[in-house]
Design a protein around this nucleic acid. Structure first.
Lengths: 203, 203, 203, 203
DNA sequence: CGATAAGCGAGACGGTACGTCACGTCTTGGC
DNA sequence: GCCAAGACGTGACGTACCGTCTCGCTTATCG
């Protein structure tokens, strides 16, 4: 992961400010267009208009770059406090479905699976994904529990797995079948999904 | 995909019968051990004890080999007729969870996601996955409908997506957290999942 | 080298009579067109209209085939008894120049040089070339000595080397310069060459 | 042929200075030890201690590398001004005989013949050989003509062909017969050859 | 005549080298 | 000391050819 800003302000030329964002964006675009094979560091550097050394100065290798590129965009997921559990979950599920249907969101999924396959280096990324994504659901559940909408004994992971799993499989099957994006359909699926989850946790 | 059997019985030396299976098995093992990067055709050929030409004679490139290796093993999933919808779904969910936790099953997922990302060549594979996996659920649902256990108006795709999505996300989260396999836990999850689905389709 | 005819007349199907000549001819043509690199056994077999096994049944490997193809054609060189040393040498030199300018003759030279570079297996070929070519000159010289035209003390090798070396370098330089074949020029060169040799051996 | 030195001084890392010489030397050694077959680019790169990309960056393919390797060493032939035509020719003939008996010189011959067979790409190499080798003889002849030792009407090519052809055939026949190198014999042959040429051009 | 044997065209086989390409590192001059 | 450019050593890619092998077939001799 890139060395965060700040630091003791070294002596030489400072790192070009916009470089990191340009590179991360280029990485995501390349990954989206060409997939893992066909995703080359040279192409990323060329597309970002920087030299390879600038890339390798910030990320140790290909995996690290791609992982962070994907994490950054996956992290943008936010939730709103609508006042009801159903409203919160509806917003989350809708965002998630839309996210997974976007190139960046889809890339997130793929990288997550790749990372989950490599036992050695999953530390940072899995933690990031688990925490960032899981945290949102925990917040929602906590609010619901505070309001008395939800049994305090229920583990929020159940909700997380249900929503994320459904969104993932939905996105996958649509892609396999070549279906087109359809906002109304996504909303409908979100509603169906949330009601199912509510049914389950109040069962 | 390898040229199917049969044909007009060409004139030259026939292709070595066992070669394809050996190569596919070697491919799966290599993929399981080393992941996509680190999966090399030379290693597959060496492990299978064949020359590279023998591999490339059957599969056009790395992707094609891996795709078929994974499809073959993903296709082995079968179901049993236990006499009840719940029993059928329990067997399916249990098999699926165990499958996705195995190296070959996990590889299936990864390759499926990769294939779903490449719009050009998903034809054969996505059809295979959709049909083979979807067909099992359709059979189960048809039997349930015949027995009057299930409302004929329900689209089996709902069941498929729920079970596969849950199995997938479950396998993913276990891997991300480094959890170990646990038969009892898998059975418990399967039961929980099936009951959720039943709750949904009888809602 | 191919097993000559005759033999005890085995039991199985006899070797197809014309095959050897077809293969040798095809080999020479391939060599002439594509050189050593680009000279492939598959192409030879295809051009000759036979299977590879038919080729390998007769020659142990590529070298052996090419060597014999070239030897066969190099061996066709014959001389005539014109009654005078100068006439005999003129005929020989003319034939030789023409031979080296033909594709087959040029191939002979190239293969000879290749063979001369491989110390292990030059046995058969070098003997063939030395004897076949050297023998002609020896015969001419013997007749000349018998007629009293030539000092018996002169080693015929001198004549051989002079004529063959000149013909070889002549052919080489013409090729390097892209000059076209020219019968009259060849005859002129032959005459000049022979007179030079005569000058030398009567010196 | 490798891009000559100089140039506009590009921006990236300069090509490693010694690499070309190391590679050319390694190529000659490999060729000398293993001949054309058995001459592999991997082995050349390994022996030179460089990567294959470094080789292919400079030479387009195997032929180009070998051709230049041989040209470089063939070009080293120089002559001395001994003050007499016979002395100059003796020195040249001696050098040439020794050159053709050395592995590098012999390789020059072989490659020259190969190049002379490929009509497409003989441009650079044949010109190099013709000019470099022919130029030496022209210089010798010019000096002889200036001194009045040689009829100005004689074309120096006659001398070139005679000396080079004799040296070539001599080296070839020695190799075919497996004769060992013998300095005294080479000098004797050189003297005999030069006297023959002198006899001819003063005839 | 049928059995036996070898040649034959076709082409798959295990290897190995080809020439290309990407990785991650290193080395310039310029900023 | 960061940067763009690009050469470097390494190693996998997918192709092509080597020399061997295994088919089904043909063409001979021998019993």
């Amino acid at each position: 992961m890139a060395t965060g800003a700040g630091g003791p302000r070294g002596r030489g030329r400072p790192r070009t400010p916009g470089a990191e964002d340009k590179i991360l964006a280029a990485a995501l675009e390349e990954y989206g267009e060409h997939g893992w094979s066909g995703f080359t560091m040279d192409a990323v550097a060329r597309r970002a208009g920087v030299g390879k050394s600038t890339v390798y100065l910030r990320w140790h290798d290909k995996d690290a770059l791609l992982t962070e590129a994907v994490t950054r965009h996956g992290i943008e997921l936010t939730t709103v406090d609508t006042g009801t559990l159903r409203g919160d979950l509806l917003a989350l599920a809708g965002n998630l479905l839309r996210h997974f249907h976007s190139p960046a969101g889809w890339a997130t999924i793929r990288v997550t699976f790749d990372v989950a396959s490599a036992h050695e280096r999953l530390g940072g990324f899995s933690r990031a994904v688990s925490q960032v994504h899981g945290r949102q659901v925990e917040l929602i559940c906590q609010r619901a529990k505070d309001r008395g909408e939800m049994d305090p004994g229920i583990w929020p992971g159940v909700v997380t797995e249900a929503i994320y799993g459904a969104a993932m499989i939905n996105s996958l099957s649509e892609r396999l079948e070549g279906r087109e994006d359809d906002e109304a359909y996504l909303d409908e699926r979100a509603a169906w999904l949330v009601d199912l989850v509510l049914l389950d946790i109040t069962r």
